[in-house]
Amino acid sequence: MTASRQAIGQYGERCAVRFLTDAGLVIVDRNWRCPTGEIDIIARDGDTVVFCEVKTRRGERFGTPEEAVTTVKAGRIRRLAAAWLAAHPGHRRREVRFDLVAVRVGRSGAAQVDHVPAAF
């Protein structure tokens, strides 16, 4: 991954965290990694554990952020969520939800953030 793409991704994740916390969610973990992958944001929305995939785009040349979460990607995130829950037994009995946070970055101005609860 190029430094520019990595910087855009990190910016998108910061925007997503700000948006989610402003919406009342509590961030529990960020960029959680295990040998099979990474979950961008894990949050709590009341009694629900929310696993968030953040997709940041500068344009739609490679598709929209929503199109980037394929069934294969969604399946991987679900497996990663199961691994996170196994590693954090205090959260196992809670409801679970999988959200998408789509961040669109223009040439100027603030990024546009769209939160799609239960996206996959």
Rank of each mutant, 00 (worst) to 15 (best):
G24E: 08
E38D: 04
I27G: 03
R18K: 14
E66P: 05
R104W: 15
A74E: 08
D45H: 13
A43F: 02
G75Q: 12
V49I: 15
A3Y: 09
A81Q: 05
I39A: 00
S108K: 06
F62S: 14
A74V: 03
A82L: 13
A119K: 05
P65I: 11
G9N: 11
T36K: 03
A83H: 08
E66T: 15
V26K: 12
F120Q: 04
R79F: 04
V113P: 09
A43S: 10
V105R: 10
T64L: 14
K73S: 04
D45R: 13
I41W: 01
F19G: 04
R76V: 10
A7H: 12
G9A: 10
R92M: 11
V101Q: 04
L80W: 06
V96L: 08
A83E: 13
G106S: 06
E60F: 15
T48N: 08
D114P: 01
T2K: 11
A102M: 11
A118R: 08
I39K: 00
G46M: 06
E38V: 01
P89G: 12
V54I: 11
A3D: 15
L20H: 05
D47Y: 04
V105E: 08
V72I: 07
A83T: 13
V105A: 05
V96I: 11
L85T: 10
R107W: 09
E95N: 14
G59V: 05
I42G: 03
R107H: 12
V113L: 01
R18Y: 03
G109I: 03
G106C: 08
E95C: 05
V105I: 15
R30Y: 00
R76F: 04
A3P: 05
T21V: 15
V17A: 07
A7W: 08
A110V: 11
E38I: 00
F51P: 04
D45I: 02
E67S: 15
L25E: 02
D47I: 08
R14Q: 15
F19S: 14
G106F: 09
Q10C: 07
I42W: 03
F51H: 03
A87N: 07
A43N: 03
G37Y: 01
R76E: 12
I42C: 06
V49A: 05
R57P: 01
V17Q: 05
A86I: 07
P65V: 10
H115N: 02
N31P: 00
A3M: 11
D22L: 05
R97V: 08
A110T: 09
R104M: 13
V103E: 04
V116I: 15
V96H: 10
P89W: 08
D114N: 05
G106P: 00
I27D: 00
T56D: 10
E60M: 07
I77L: 11
Q112E: 14
S4H: 13
V28P: 01
V72M: 05
A82C: 06
